[in-house]
């Protein structure tokens, strides 16, 4: 019964895609939409050629993706590491919270892209500037979620650990950290998607490679199939990243799953 239902859902989602493609194709074939949009077939053909032939000077589409992914992983890795530490420190120490929180609250509402000019002034247009922008993109969400998670550690459960003889350090690693993990993950999930957006913004401003550059280059050459193929690559990669993160969460937080 369950298998049948999932097959049915899969077929329905395929039908949804097919309907969009059909409307797109019909629009291109029979109306003036064709002047604004290449046909889906043309985009698909371009997507394949971009995977085999170079786009720009030396990279194929998958290689451009890898360049972007590398930037994201470095920037996101940095923001995750520092964000989790700062979030927990703010949550568990009154002193650190008193000092850091006002500063953080001030920085928090600034959109990541607003840092682009500053990053270029500071770091030039090289890798460092891009990684900085990605870092900023993920950092805020990770801090916010980790902070609220570490504020919500159940005091009764902490007391239970102390009653059993745990010292502060043991209580921190065995109680505080694990009970924050679900919160940290929701921060990482949002942080990863904002990092992925930030890499595109960074690459659209100044780059000679990466998926962001593919789109901007497509715009400069009025090459719509290239723009659309780039967008599709971005969507698929973003989805893959989010799914990977969910998988990791499922493994690390399996203690929260009811049922078998």
């Amino acid at each position: 019964m369950k298998v049948a239902a999932s097959i049915k859902n899969f077929l329905l989602s395929l039908a949804g895609f097919a309907a969009i493609l059909l409307i797109w194709q019909l629009g291109v074939s029979f109306t003036s939409v064709g002047n604004l949009l290449p046909s889906p077939w043309a985009v698909a053909v371009r997507f394949v050629t971009m995977c085999t032939n170079t786009v720009g000077r030396k990279y194929t589409l998958p290689m451009h993706l890898l360049v972007s992914l590398r930037r994201v992983l470095i920037g996101f890795g940095l923001s995750a590491a520092s964000g989790i530490v700062i979030g927990i420190a703010m949550g568990r120490s009154d002193l650190i919270r008193a000092i850091v929180r006002p500063l953080f609250e001030l920085v928090r509402p600034i959109p990541g892209v607003a840092w682009i000019p500053m990053a270029i002034v500071w770091f030039g247009i090289g890798e460092t500037a891009k990684i900085f922008i990605i870092f900023i993109g993920g950092f805020v969400n990770i801090v916010v979620n980790t902070f609220s998670g570490s504020r919500q550690v159940d005091e009764n459960i902490l007391n239970a650990a102390y009653m059993l003889g745990a010292n502060k350090v043991q209580a921190f690693f065995k109680i505080v950290i694990p009970s924050c993990v679900p919160y940290i993950f929701s921060g990482l999930q949002v942080g990863l998607s904002t990092s992925w957006m930030a890499v595109l913004a960074a690459e659209m401003v100044s780059a000679t490679e990466g998926v962001g550059w593919i789109i901007t280059a497509g715009q400069q050459n009025a090459d719509m199939p290239q723009i659309l193929a780039g967008i599709i690559a971005i969507a698929v990669t973003g989805l893959a990243l989010a799914s990977l993160m969910r998988l990791l969460e499922r493994v690390l937080c399996r203690w929260r799953v009811r049922g078998s």
Partner: peptide, 25 residues
Amino acid sequence: GMVYQTTNLFMWYNVMKNVEFGPCV
């Protein structure tokens, strides 16, 4: 030792790790 109304178990540990928590720490 304490047994609570709301069990206050360590949800991220399995039964064995919950029970051995005291001796462990």
